[in-house]
């Protein structure tokens, strides 16, 4: 069956045999966007987090059929080197990543949190950022999340449109 959605600002129509195929597989293996990671395939680690209609979604456990007509943003569409998203900018300033594998998932989860809660408290962070980082970068991530909130506020009038 055919499923259409907008991903990183581009319309796509894809043909899938099984409409329950996880969105993550479509994104990584069909659309060849490798920034969204596979960690567990069971919604347990958050490495595959992306945005569907501005909400954080664990795409390994999100059947592609639910994406019909929706707008998806992956790490590749969040920002780029020329125009980083405030969360990415904050991550660079705080030198957060170690191995880096979990980082796109955390960055997407944080960006979604800031959409809802522009100035998250430590409690908000603890309750909402529940991905796993084995390298233990949580300490810097927390600083980066607060910094990202500041950066977003500074440029609050500028919205972060998807450019492609």
């Amino acid at each position: 069956m055919k499923i259409s959605f907008i991903i990183n600002g581009m319309s796509k129509i894809i043909d899938v045999e099984d409409e329950n195929t996880p969105l993550l597989y479509i994104i990584r293996d069909v659309l060849d966007l490798k920034g969204t990671k596979f960690g567990c395939g069971k919604a347990a680690c958050g490495a595959c987090t992306l945005h569907v209609n501005n909400e954080a979604v664990r795409s390994c456990s999100y059947p592609v059929k639910f994406a019909e007509g929706k707008e998806i943003i992956t790490i590749e569409g969040l920002g780029n080197r020329a125009k980083p998203h405030p969360v990415q900018q904050a991550w660079i300033e705080e030198i957060v990543p170690q191995c880096g594998y979990c980082q796109p998932g955390f960055i997407m989860a944080t960006a979604a949190l800031l959409n809802k809660v522009p100035r998250p408290t430590d409690k908000d962070i603890d309750n909402n950022i529940i991905n796993i980082c084995r390298c233990g970068t949580y300490y810097r991530m927390r600083k980066a999340i607060h910094r990202a909130a500041e950066l977003s506020a500074e440029s609050s009038s500028t919205s972060f449109k998807i450019t492609d």
Binding site: K37, E76, R81, Q88, I92
Partner: peptide, 11 residues
């Protein structure tokens, strides 16, 4: 740092 923050396919 940037490769890891912008999701480059490095793994």
């Amino acid at each position: 740092l940037e490769d890891k923050v912008f999701g480059d396919p490095i793994f």
